[in-house]
Design a protein around this nucleic acid. Structure first.
Lengths: 239, 239
DNA sequence: CGTGCTTTTGACCGTGTTCAATGGATGTGG
DNA sequence: CCACATCCATTGAACACGGTCAAAAGCACG
């Protein structure tokens, strides 16, 4: 039996989770760098992330680094969109040691046939993903490096806080600077300089696998951060 | 009675369209620049675009231009995600004269309660939107200006071709260069230079409200275009 | 204590921005 | 019919942001 994680799945109420969790008997684990599923694979199941961090990557030729188009936190499905789409347009890659719960599309199919409300909730969760995608388009298109990285870290903070219920001034952070670079459309060299700037501004610092937030308000301001696009379950009527 | 447009709604079969279209009795029209719905509005209906072009825009302060995070073509719902989400994180703006068909969420609710397959199709259509969002993240993060604009025009070509069934070497194009700029994360000045480059390369040219494609293969190559992410209904097993 | 990976730093350079002026097209009122 | 306003596209010059290349410094792990 999978115990209910916090975060995105808080969109589900207890009853809905009670129906869904029995279908997720198989748990799996991945190591950093493992490719969970390949672009174009025919998928017959989806995965709920229980712990760790997963990226959706678009590969671009041999030479170039692939672009990170999305990041998934615990409590989120990493590839629920594979249920209607069947094939994905991107790779799914484990960035850290991760543990996941597996749900077969056949089981999900039968469950959702009998529960329209639950189906709508899962639909909604994929739409929150889409909202985050739109924010990433905006961030990587219209913000300069400093604001861009600051905003990225604000999002990390917010989603991590939701995943592990409880705001902290220091949170686990196992992304490398090259991962931040792939996600923000910068080079890792420039990410390094940008993080130094944020440090010198007294906003936050990354070291030893921890993100220390020294001035959350300042960081939010610097990243022009407004969490509305995350459609957090608890924050109700934010938008 | 709304006659079935081509494009995204081709994901629906005739029977499904037969169920959906009677709910879209009200048709509406918008002029260029009209705001169809505002960020944060509580929506009780969604709109299917029948003709024209609609953008989803994220406003960014008074001074700056707003970012175009998505573009909708005829045959696509412009705000179907408002059905589960209720409130949107962005504005919906008519870029041209547009005509739309309106469907009330209450009606949709009742219809989908009785047709799980149709619900899944509509879910799928929003997931294709999300796939396009991811592509935009990649394009605006990882491609240089020339490839970026070329890729954007390839997408325009492909979606326009799907919407009006039939490949042509010259298609209606009512976007201004500043719209392209807002969608690609460039300045309109640089879009102007980039379009000149594409013209001088013999790929395509924009003038008089028409996009003339002189060398489609060359344009695709220049924009590294692969339409798989569009999940076109007719193209079947592309991914 | 070396080997390999990540971060940091420096110098240089190029893509794209900014600012500003010009030109072209379209539309309006005198 | 022509002045005039408006909007959009185009061009030029200067510059800054971020990229590229390369080397060095930290750091973890065997």
């Amino acid at each position: 039996m999978t115990s209910k994680p916090s975060g995105m799945v808080d969109h589900l109420n207890a009853e809905q989770w009670g129906k869904l969790s029995p279908l997720m008997m198989h748990h799996g684990h991945f190591a950093p760098g493992d490719i969970v599923s390949h672009r174009g694979d025919l998928l017959d199941h989806s995965l709920l992330l229980l712990d760790g961090l997963v990226a959706r990557k678009v590969p671009r030729g041999q030479r170039a680094r692939s672009t990170v188009v999305a990041l998934q936190f615990p409590g989120e499905f990493v590839d629920l969109h594979a249920f209607p789409l069947k094939k994905l347009d991107h790779d799914v890659v484990s960035l850290t040691g991760t543990s996941v719960a597996r749900i077969a599309h056949d089981d999900l199919h039968h469950l959702l046939n009998g529960d329209v409300e639950l189906a709508r909730k899962l639909w909604l969760m994929t739409l929150v993903d889409a909202s985050i995608h739109r924010h990433w388009v905006m961030r990587n298109s219209a913000m300069r490096a400093l604001a861009r990285v600051a905003n990225f870290l604000c999002e990390y903070d917010a989603r991590m806080t939701a995943a592990y219920a409880g705001e902290r001034d220091s949170l686990p952070f196992s992304l490398r600077q090259s991962d931040i670079a792939d996600a923000t459309g910068l080079t890792s060299v420039h990410v390094s300089r940008t993080l130094r700037d944020l440090r010198e501004h007294g906003c936050c610092s990354v070291s030893g696998g921890q993100l220390a937030i020294h001035d959350r308000a300042g960081l939010h301001k610097m990243g022009m951060f407004d969490a509305a696009y995350l459609y957090m379950p608890q924050s109700g009527t934010a938008l």
